[in-house]
Structure formats: structure tokens, C-alpha cells
């Protein structure tokens, strides 16, 4: 029971995963969401902590925007996105009065909220906690890694798109992981190609192969390519039942494979 006390609200959390990328708009939030869905599909209980304070997108993706967070004796109660309570979420999006409110905060204020997010959310029992981050290697990242260090996170999944401009930023993120002692679980290449729904021609909108090459160059595992799936984007935007829709997506096999690799990593400790 002493250990439980030390770990506080994270006592029941099995593994902590960070989703990082030096670059913005490469799909960190999408991959965090999809990874949560894939792990849930594998029968796991998953929490998502959104530390992107200036641009929280996960509430919208999981159709829980406008929900509010409640306070209990031991802290903030996260928002559950399904009836089975298999996915829970905490985001600054739930603390804003109006969805368009801008969070115009400098570093110290962001750091204070992140610390609160890490210590004060009552996650309960979770197999995985996925931490979605904003782009860059600055305040949010340093604070998140520092506050999570004592909980020994499983590591970071780095997301990139295939172009060189994106790869450049992810190389810097790899250096960040090395410098802060955060293990890299692997690299995911997102938006790897677009299959025209009319003629099935696959176009590499943002070039191809950059993520795999980077993984080889950096000596870290390559977890896989996730194709662009406008249908999934649309179903996430329109709030159709994504838990039902998700297995039908062309991105699903790729994500299930990535989730499996993460599960394999945890099995020696888990069993």
C-alpha cells in the first residue's frame, strides 16, 4: 500500500506512453486517439491526457467537447467517452468556458497546469495512459517528462509525416528524448499515402519512406506506416460511432499492428 500512496492518482495505471513529434499537424492527436481505440479494441482500458494547452483537439475527435470535468475528494474526474468507461480523457478543452477561448499563457502557467494534470486526475485502474503533447521541445515537454519521470513511463511514440521538412523536426525530438532519458518505443509514419476513392490510384501526398529511413538512421524501431483515411477523419469529425467505425477503416490494420507491438513490449512485465 505504500507504493500506492507514492504513486498517488497514477497508482492504478499500468503503462504510460507519450506521443511526441517535433512537428505540428503530423497527426499526434489522431495517432493518440487511434492508438487508444486500437488498444481498447485489444481489450485494454485506456486513458488519454491531452497536454496540448493552446490547441487541444482530442475532445473534438472523441466527440466529448462541451463536457465538463468534476472535482471529487481525490482530484479531477476525467471524462469518459463511452458507456463501458473503457476510454477516459482529460484535456484543457474541458476547462474552457467557450470552445473558442484562447489560452494565452506563457511557460510557467502552462507548467503549473501540467503538474496538476499529472498529479490530480483520478484515472482509477488503467492499462495504458497515453499522453498527447503539442509540437516542439519546450515547456510542456520538459514539464511532462520531469513530472512523469518518477512513474517510469514505458516510453515515447514519435509521429512524423514522410517529408524531409517533418523528418528534420523529428530528428530534434529524438535528441530531446536522448537528453531527457526518455525511451523511444518507435517511430510511426503517418499520412503515408492517399488512395483516390474514385480510381484507387495511390498518391504519396507528402512523399514516402522518410519515417522508416529515419528510424534506421537513429537505430530505433519503426512501428509502421499509417495511411491517410479521409473516411476516418470524417467519421471522427462527424461523431459517428467511431468505436464501430474504426475497425472498418483502412488505417485500422496499421494501427492494430502498432498497438500489438506496444502490447508485446509490456507482456514480460505484465504477466
Amino acid at each position: 500500500m505504500e507504493v500506492v500512496g507514492e504513486r498517488g492518482n497514477l497508482a492504478g495505471v499500468g503503462h504510460i506512453l507519450l506521443v511526441l513529434s517535433g512537428k505540428g499537424g503530423v497527426g499526434k492527436s489522431t495517432i493518440s486517439t487511434e492508438l487508444a481505440l486500437a488498444l481498447r479494441h485489444a481489450g485494454k482500458k485506456v486513458g488519454i491526457l491531452d497536454v496540448d494547452l493552446c490547441g487541444p483537439s482530442i475532445p473534438q475527435m472523441l466527440k466529448v467537447q462541451g463536457k465538463s470535468v468534476h472535482q471529487c475528494d481525490s482530484g479531477w474526474v476525467p471524462v469518459f467517452v463511452d458507456q463501458d468507461k473503457s476510454i477516459s480523457l482529460m484535456s484543457i478543452g474541458f476547462l474552457l468556458e467557450k470552445p473558442d477561448d484562447a489560452v494565452v499563457w506563457r511557460g510557467p502557467k502552462k507548467n503549473a497546469l501540467i503538474k496538476q494534470f499529472i498529479s490530480d486526475v483520478t484515472w482509477g485502474e488503467l492499462d495504458f495512459l497515453i499522453v498527447d503533447t503539442p509540437p516542439g521541445t519546450s515547456d510542456e515537454h520538459i514539464s511532462t517528462v520531469e513530472s512523469l519521470r518518477q512513474y517510469k513511463p514505458l516510453g515515447a511514440v514519435l509521429v512524423t509525416t514522410p517529408q524531409a521538412v517533418s523528418i528534420g523536426d523529428v530528428r530534434r525530438e529524438l535528441t530531446f528524448c536522448k537528453k531527457t532519458g526518455l525511451r523511444v518505443i518507435g517511430i510511426v509514419e503517418n499520412m503515408s499515402g492517399f488512395v483516390c476513392p474514385h480510381c484507387l490510384e495511390c498518391t504519396n501526398l507528402f512523399s514516402k519512406g522518410g519515417g522508416e529511413e529515419l528510424a534506421r538512421h537513429a537505430g530505433v524501431p519503426f512501428l509502421g506506416c499509417v495511411p491517410l483515411d479521409p473516411q476516418l477523419t470524417q467519421s471522427l469529425e462527424e461523431g459517428r460511432d467511431f468505436i464501430q467505425e474504426f475497425p472498418k477503416s483502412s488505417a485500422f490494420p496499421a494501427l492494430a499492428h502498432i498497438a500489438q507491438q506496444i502490447l508485446d513490449r509490456t507482456s514480460p512485465e505484465g504477466s
Partner: peptide, 16 residues
């Protein structure tokens, strides 16, 4: 996005 093969436009990031 206009497919280079069939020239039909698709919305990759749909303006819902």
C-alpha cells in the same frame, strides 16, 4: 486534392 490519374477532386481534410 485533384487525383493526378483520374482528375477527380477529393477532400482529404473535409470541410465538415
Amino acid at each position: 486534392f485533384v487525383c493526378p490519374k483520374c482528375k477527380i477532386e477529393s477532400q482529404i481534410f473535409p470541410p465538415t
